[in-house]
Design a protein around this nucleic acid. Sequence first.
DNA 1: CAAGATTGAGAGGTCAATCTTC
DNA 2: GAAGATTGACCTCTCAATCTTG
Lengths: 172, 172
Amino acid sequence: MSSPADHPEPDPFSPAEFDAWRGLLRLHATVTGELQGKLADEHAISLAEYAVLITLVTEPDGLRMTDLAARRLITPSGISRVVDKLERRGLVARQEDPSDRRGFLSVLTEKGLRKLREAQVTHHAHVRETYLERLTEREQKTLARLLEKAMPGVVSSAVWPPGAVPAPRAPG
Amino acid sequence: MSSPADHPEPDPFSPAEFDAWRGLLRLHATVTGELQGKLADEHAISLAEYAVLITLVTEPDGLRMTDLAARRLITPSGISRVVDKLERRGLVARQEDPSDRRGFLSVLTEKGLRKLREAQVTHHAHVRETYLERLTEREQKTLARLLEKAMPGVVSSAVWPPGAVPAPRAPG
DNA sequence: CAAGATTGAGAGGTCAATCTTC
DNA sequence: GAAGATTGACCTCTCAATCTTG
């Protein structure tokens, strides 16, 4: 016969490690799971699509597909399909990259901007209600500082993973 | 013409809110993304499968499919398919629920326990290297306390969502 | 008829292969 | 030949429908 007692846990998590890991997983799954549903019901948009729109709104010149993929932490293949869907709905547009004929730039359209601003109300309200609202500003800052310490750059870096998108090219 | 300036952000996140939300998303995506790859390469197991095994190891009598789904925050449909895969590989077994002939219990097999213990080494090492290791025990506790305050029960509740799994039935 | 579990169809992602341009 | 983008094959999960038992 055999039981879990015969196969002891190798190098188990301490209680503090266990709580910090499980809490992160559960909170993330709960917030994003419900958020997916609300965005789909109220705005007919997925969380992945929302993430693409919110990434592009800060890039008036657009982003190359590969860079957009790196920012969203999905593959070029996956980005190509998300952008396909958004383009069919007129929320983003593909433009040829004038500096490299292999590349395409995804840019937010006027319609995409309006859609983003509508969806953002739902998004922010939900994230606040289920996560941020019960923390003081000081606690939010402490939490962000701990996340940054756990994985340097994860909060402070303008892009993630760091260095995925090069600094703006010097003119000429 | 129109530009983002004409569609101002409605009720935007404060810097503290923004950092706390973005840091959570990025850290989660980075840790779990790489973890998926390592578990697949080294143990031929997905993160969803690992999560099922780690859930069942604490339940010597097994869990009903619906309860297992609630614990893993996926649908009964999804659990049915994951358990199918694990059962074909002999890592879990389905047993008829003696108290309700509609139900089935998923139980961990001896082989599943061995696989879990092997995978756990990879899992814990990765989570420590990319997340827990740069925090002191005190910081890990602070982080867990903040997550718990943000979403009460998310750390402290033995099961999540709370109440998904009923207390053990009284004998008889 | 309600609840537990499963199945078919579809959405959304990955990897490997392909095409075009550097 | 390498890099950027896309497509085909496949995998996993969800939703809606179905089957069985309470």
